[in-house]
Every structure is written in structure tokens, then in C-alpha cells.
């Protein structure tokens, strides 16, 4: 039963992460900001609305957000929540996770190209560019974790990070955690990679890709984005919070608190950093890959 804590928490609390990030940014900027639950209201509101489709779009434009949401929701089945295991775990489930993340992105990119608009094309082009570099980086990070724990399934990897292992492999853990933080920012199009609140379509990545979606499909996109934020975030928080007491309530609370802290941290990063020039982003991702490569070398022998 405890296996289902992880997906249920994700389904319930994922939009809250977005709320916390926005609230943090507002507070830092000296505003009151929207309520923490605003992302939930947004999703509910979009579900009620009608839809406007671009004239040249086909069925693929309608299918894209659905596939994206379904692949991320299915991925919840294999993502552990710290020491609390996922409902399913098997050797190589991290490959399936990478596959599902990639499937969701592929569907979004194709839906964007279906509009025939150069804005969407521009966003899609940037998205696939950064994703192509982020994918090997994710594998580097996961490979390091696999080598530390001697397993290549997510649940045993995260359960294997007991306090002793954690302290023993601390330098590698710190480096991989930095990689995962950067990946969290890159994969979810946060500052310094992409600014979801910029006023100019020309400078966006993810937001411009979904510019022409509306109604329930936009609701799916927003909810899926929250899930993606949650999935990569829980990989990071599960690593940073070495709480393997075996107590269900204690671990669950620690993880939820950790996720909240992560959201505040992302909000703080977004408030204090400027967006990188597009040409700098690949260097940012390659930097993350280097961190994990160094971590792998540290734990190699």
C-alpha cells in the first residue's frame, strides 16, 4: 500500500509546487502574489473553457497534450518518493522513466509544429536542442547513483541511500544533486534557462510551444508541467534528504517538506538570477554533465 503514496502525493501536490514558486517570487519582489492554490484554480478554469484551434492544425495538435499528460502520469508508477518506494520497481525502470519523459516531449514538440507558426517552430527547435543535451546528462547522473548503490532500479537506488552510504559517498552525492538541480531547471524551463513569464514570445521556449493551446488541452499541459516538475524534483529531494528511518509518516513528511523547500529554492533562483543568453544554455547543461562525470570518477574505484 505504501507504494501508492508516491503517485498519490504527486497527483495531489504537484500544482502546489508551482504555487509555492510563484508565491516566493512575489514575496521577493515585494508583492503579495496569487494564493498558493491558484494553479489548481487555473487548471479547473481551463477545463471549463471552450477551445480555439489554429486553422492548419490536425488531430496531432489535439492528441499532443493528451499523450504528454498520460506519459508523465504513467511515469509516476516508477518514481520513488525518497525512501518510500514506487508502486512498481524493476531493473531498468530508470530507462522507462527516460523513455516516458522523452515521449511526452516528442508529443508536445510535434503538436507545436502542427500549428505551422514560426513562434511554435522556434520554441520546438530550442526544446529539442536542450533536451538532446539533457538526456545524456540525466543518464550520467543516474549511472553514478546506480554505481553507488549497486542497483539500477529507482526504488532500490533511493532506498539504498541510508545515512552510512550517504556520508560515505557525500562528494558524489553533492555533485549529482547539483546536476539534478540543473536538470530540474532545464527540463522544466525555469530561469536561468527559460522565463515562463516573459512578455515576448521570441524569447520563450516552453511557453511559446504551447501558445496556441486552449481550453481543456491547456489544462492538461499545465497539469503535466506540474507533474514533470514534481518527478524531477523528487529525484533530487530524495537524494538530498537522507532520511531512511523506515517510518512511513516520518519519511513522507520529510520528503514533502523537502519538496516545499525545493520549490522555495527554485523561486529564489528565479528571483535572483537573470535568464541566460540562449547560446549559454548548452554550456550550462554540459556543466551539469561534467559535474556528474566527476562524481562517477570519484566513486569509480
Amino acid at each position: 500500500m505504501s507504494g501508492f503514496v508516491s503517485p498519490v502525493c504527486a497527483l495531489i501536490f504537484a500544482p502546489l509546487l508551482v504555487g509555492i514558486i510563484n508565491r516566493t517570487k512575489a514575496v521577493v519582489a515585494g508583492r503579495r502574489g496569487p494564493p498558493l492554490v491558484q494553479p489548481y484554480w487555473d487548471v479547473a478554469k481551463y477545463l471549463q473553457r471552450g477551445v480555439v484551434y489554429g486553422e492548419v492544425t490536425s488531430w496531432l495538435f489535439r492528441l499532443g497534450p493528451v499523450v504528454n499528460l498520460a506519459s508523465l502520469a504513467a511515469a509516476l508508477l516508477i518514481v520513488p518518493f525518497g525512501g518510500l518506494g514506487a508502486p512498481l520497481n524493476f531493473s531498468g525502470d530508470l530507462i522507462v522513466l527516460a523513455g516516458l519523459l522523452a515521449l511526452g516531449r516528442f508529443a508536445t514538440v510535434l503538436a507545436a509544429l502542427d500549428t505551422g507558426s514560426s513562434f511554435e517552430g522556434m520554441g520546438a527547435s530550442r526544446e529539442v536542442h536542450f533536451a538532446a543535451l539533457a538526456e545524456p546528462t540525466l543518464f550520467l547522473a543516474l549511472a553514478t547513483l546506480a554505481r553507488v548503490t549497486g542497483s539500477f532500479s529507482l526504488t532500490p537506488i533511493y532506498q539504498g541511500f541510508t545515512a552510512t552510504v550517504w556520508v560515505h559517498a557525500l562528494p558524489a552525492v553533492v555533485l549529482v544533486a547539483m546536476t539534478l538541480l540543473i536538470l530540474e531547471l532545464v527540463e522544466n524551463n525555469r530561469i536561468p534557462v527559460d522565463d515562463p513569464t516573459t512578455h515576448l514570445e521570441l524569447t520563450m521556449i516552453h511557453e511559446v510551444m504551447v501558445l496556441d493551446h486552449s481550453g481543456p488541452e491547456l489544462a492538461f499541459i499545465h497539469y503535466a508541467a506540474a507533474l514533470r516538475l514534481w518527478i524531477l524534483g523528487s529525484l533530487l529531494v530524495g537524494l538530498v534528504v537522507p532520511f531512511r528511518s523506515g517510518s512511513f509518516w516520518l519519511e513522507g513528511t520529510a520528503m514533502l517538506l523537502g519538496m516545499a523547500v525545493l520549490a522555495v529554492a527554485i523561486g529564489a533562483i528565479e528571483s535572483t538570477m537573470a535568464r541566460y543568453q540562449l547560446i549559454r544554455v548548452p554550456q550550462f547543461i554540459l556543466g551539469a554533465a561534467t559535474l556528474s562525470a566527476v562524481a562517477f570518477i570519484i566513486i569509480l574505484v
Binding site: G50, V51, G54
Partner: peptide, 13 residues
């Protein structure tokens, strides 16, 4: 949802 709501087509932004 779309059965209940308005669906129309327009030029993309």
C-alpha cells in the same frame, strides 16, 4: 468537455 463548450478555429497567433 468539448461537447459542452464552444469549439472554433482561428488563425494562430
Amino acid at each position: 468537455r468539448l461537447a459542452l463548450a464552444a469549439v472554433r478555429t482561428a488563425q494562430v497567433w
